[in-house]
Design a protein around this nucleic acid. Structure first.
Length: 573
RNA sequence: GGCGUUAUAGCUCAGUUGGUUAGAGCGAACGACUCAUAAUCGUUAGGUCGGUGGUUCAAGUCCACCUAACGCCA
C-alpha cells in the first residue's frame, strides 16, 4: 500500500471562486485523491484558505467587518461550497491557524540562523493619523496621467497606468482619508533565494519526469536576467503572522507581519497539523507525512495548481524548505493547469465574469460540473467553456450513455425477472469478448489515472460505459428472452454486473451518481475491480436490487438559453 | 514595444523521441434495434494539419520569416 500526500493550491479568502479556479487545482486533486483511496492506498488530501494580505483587509473593510471575522465567515462559506462539489479534503484548513503561525515563525527562525535572511531598509509612505505604514494600494489620489481622482498608489484603474505612491497628486490614506502622509524609512526582511539558486537548480534537474511546462517556467525564473531574485517576506499590515524568529522576538520588526506568499505554502504543512488536532491525533501522526526523519520517506507527494502558481511551488516554497536545513518532504509530482475560458473571454473574479461555484451548484448537481470540467480540463493548453458544449456533453455522456445504461438494464431485469439478479446459463463467448474488451480499457483507464492525465482518463471511462451499451445491443436480451430465457438471464446478469463495475470506476469523477447506483444495487462496501473477470460475477443469482431513479436529467434548450442569458454579464449578487 | 503561448475535420480537442492511407467525441447522412431518459449500436462523409520558405530519403512533428488570437511584462 502506497502513501499519497496530495495538496491543492489554496484559494484566496476574499470571495467565492469561479469554475476556472476549481478545475485548475481543487477538482483534479480531488479526482486523484478519490482514485488513490479507491485503489486502497493511504491518502492525506489537504487544502485550506489563504487568508492574509491586503486584499483580505480591503474585502473585510468593504463588508464592514473585522478582518478576522470576515475570514472566519468566508472560510465557512468556501468550506460549504467545497462540500457541495464533493471535494474530499481530509482537512480544509486556514492559513491563519495557530499551527501556521508557529510553523511560519519557525521557518523564519531557521532561515535566519542559516544566514538566508537579510534586512533591508526601504522608504515607504507613513500615515501619521492612521499611525501606520500604508501599502501602495491603500493610498489614493489623482492620477498624474489621466486626472482620475481615485487612482491607487500601485496603479490607476481608469487608465491602467502603473504608478508609484509618490506620483499621486493630493495623495491620501484610503483608510481614513488623511492627507498627512510622509515617506519614512522602514525595515523589511528578504529571503536570500539567490543564495539557494544552485541547490534549486540541481533539485529541478533531478525532476526528469516533470512536464516541460513546469520545468521551463522554473528554469526561466532561475536563469533569466540576473537570475533568481531575493524576495521580501514581510509587510506593514495588522492582519497576518507576526514576524518572530521562532519563539523569540525579532528586534526592529515588532509591527510587521510575514508577507502572504511566504506563509501560504507553509500552510500545506500546518494544515496537516490542523488535521491531526481536529481528529484527536498526535504530532507524530502528521509528521509521518511531512518529515523524512519521521516516516515520510515512503510518501509520494503530489501538488495541483494553476500555471500562475508554478514559480511559488517550484522555487519559493522549496527555497524555504531547503533553506531550513531540516528534512522536510519535498514535492515529487507537480501537476499544473492552464486557464479555462468562458464563452470567448476569460473567467474573471474581479469583473464577476463567468460562473461561480455557488451559482453552479444552484442550477445543477455537482456531478454534472465535475464531469464536464474534468473531461475538458485545460491540461495542454487553455480550454473553452461554452453552454452548447456543456449541454451536449452532459446530455450525451451522462444521461444517454451512462444514465440510460443503468436505466435500461435495471428496468429490463425488473420486468422480466424481477428486482433480483437472475441465474440462468453461464457466460458464453459474447460475454467473454465483452469482459476482455473492458479489461483492456480498464488497464488503460488505470494508467491514465496514475499519470494524472485527466481528460484521457475521462475519455477512457466513457469508452468503458459504451462497452455496456455495445454488449446489450449485440446480445439483445429482449430478443433472446423470447426463445431462450436461460441465456437472456445470463446476459442480464452480466449487464447488472457491468452497472456495478461502472459505478465503482466512475466514483472518482461522479461520487454522487456512483453512490446512487451502488445503493440501488445493494452494494455497501465497493472494492476496486483488480480482476474484471471475477468482479463481473460478484453480483450472483439471487442478489436483490432496486431500480434507481433517473440518474441524470437532461439539460433542455430552454434551460441552456436561460442560463446563457443569466451568466452573460457581470455577477451582481 | 519586449517576452511567451496557441493556430489540426462544422464544434471541443488527441497526435510520444520527425517515418506506412492524420485520430476521438459531439454534430451531419444512412442503416439496425425497440429493453431504456425519442435512449442505444453500426456504417459513411468531412481536414493541401494558419501562410511562405528551408533542413531531411522522409515534417502536423525540426528551423526561419510572416499572419492571427490570447496572455505576461513594460
Amino acid at each position: 500500500m502506497a502513501r499519497h500526500l496530495i495538496t491543492s493550491a489554496i484559494p484566496y479568502i476574499n470571495g467565492i471562486k469561479h469554475l476556472g479556479n476549481l478545475v485548475g487545482s481543487q477538482l483534479p486533486a480531488d479526482l486523484f485523491a478519490r482514485y488513490q483511496r479507491a485503489r486502497g492506498h493511504e491518502v492525506l488530501f489537504l487544502c485550506a484558505t489563504d487568508e492574509h494580505g491586503t486584499p483580505a483587509e480591503l474585502a473585510a473593510a468593504k463588508a464592514g467587518k473585522p478582518v478576522a471575522d470576515y475570514c472566519a465567515e468566508m472560510h465557512a462559506v468556501q468550506a460549504e461550497i467545497a462540500r457541495g462539489f464533493r471535494l474530499s479534503f481530509d482537512h480544509f484548513g486556514r492559513s491563519s491557524s495557530p499551527q501556521n503561525h508557529a510553523l511560519t515563525q519557525h521557518f523564519a527562525g531557521r532561515l535566519a540562523e542559516a544566514g538566508l535572511i537579510r534586512e533591508v531598509v526601504e522608504k515607504q509612505v507613513y500615515s501619521v493619523k492612521d499611525g501606520r505604514f500604508l501599502p501602495d494600494r491603500y493610498i489614493e489620489g489623482t492620477c498624474p496621467n489621466c486626472g482620475y481622482d481615485k487612482a491607487r498608489g500601485d496603479q490607476c484603474e481608469n487608465c491602467t497606468k502603473q504608478l508609484d505612491p509618490t506620483d499621486l497628486i493630493d495623495a491620501r490614506s484610503a483608510i481614513s482619508g488623511a492627507t498627512e502622509l510622509e515617506v519614512r524609512d522602514t525595515k523589511h526582511l528578504y529571503l536570500r533565494q539567490s543564495a539557494l539558486k544552485d541547490q534549486l537548480d540541481t533539485w529541478i534537474d533531478s525532476k526528469t519526469d516533470w512536464p516541460v511546462l513546469t520545468t521551463s517556467i522554473a528554469k526561466k525564473w532561475l536563469h533569466d536576467g540576473e537570475g533568481l531574485r531575493d524576495r521580501g517576506i514581510t509587510r506593514d499590515l495588522d492582519w497576518g503572522i507576526p514576524v518572530r524568529k521562532g519563539d523569540a522576538d525579532w528586534p526592529g520588526m515588532e509591527d510587521k507581519v510575514f508577507y502572504v506568499w511566504f506563509d501560504a505554502p507553509i500552510e500545506y504543512i500546518a494544515c496537516a497539523g490542523e488535521w491531526a488536532e481536529a481528529n484527536g491525533l498526535s504530532e507524530e501522526d502528521w509528521q509521518r507525512w511531512w518529515r523524512m526523519d519521521k516516516g515520510a520517506d515512503d510518501v509520494r507527494y503530489t501538488q495541483f495548481m494553476g500555471k500562475d502558481n508554478v514559480p511559488f511551488h517550484t522555487l519559493s516554497f522549496p527555497a524555504t524548505l531547503i533553506g531550513s536545513g531540516e528534512p522536510w518532504k519535498m514535492v515529487d509530482h507537480l501537476k499544473s493547469f492552464n486557464y479555462l475560458n468562458y464563452d470567448g473571454g476569460q473567467f474573471s473574479t474581479s469583473q464577476g465574469r463567468g460562473i461561480f461555484m455557488d451559482q453552479a451548484l444552484e442550477i445543477l448537481p455537482a456531478d454534472y460540473w465535475r464531469w464536464w470540467l474534468l473531461s475538458h480540463a485545460p491540461e495542454s493548453s487553455d480550454s473553452e467553456f461554452t453552454w452548447e458544449n456543456f449541454q451536449s456533453a452532459v446530455n450525451k455522456d451522462l444521461a444517454d450513455v451512462l444514465g440510460n445504461f443503468i436505466s435500461r438494464i435495471t428496468k429490463f431485469c425488473s420486468s422480466k425477472f424481477g428486482e433480483v439478479v437472475p441465474g440462468g446459463a453461464g457466460y458464453g463467448e459474447p460475454e467473454t469478448a465483452a469482459i476482455s474488451e473492458i479489461e483492456t480499457r480498464l488497464k488503460r483507464y488505470e494508467a491514465q489515472m496514475e499519470a494524472m492525465e485527466v481528460r484521457k482518463s475521462a475519455q477512457e471511462l466513457r469508452a468503458i460505459w459504451v462497452c455496456g451499451n455495445e454488449y446489450l445491443q449485440t446480445v439483445a436480451p429482449w430478443t433472446t428472452f423470447k426463445t431462450d430465457p436461460e441465456a437472456a438471464a445470463a446476459q442480464t446478469r452480466l449487464g447488472l454486473n457491468m452497472a456495478h463495475l461502472f459505478a465503482v470506476l466512475s466514483a472518482p469523477f461522479l461520487p454522487d451518481a456512483s453512490q446512487k447506483i451502488l445503493a440501488s444495487l445493494n452494494v455497501d462496501k465497493p472494492i476496486w475491480p483488480d480482476d474484471p473477470t471475477t468482479f463481473l460475477d460478484r453480483l450472483g443469482p439471487g442478489h436483490t436490487f432496486a431500480v434507481p431513479e433517473v440518474l441524470f436529467a437532461k439539460i433542455s434548450d430552454e434551460d441552456r438559453e436561460a442560463w446563457q442569458e443569466r451568466f452573460s454579464g457581470q455577477r451582481t449578487g
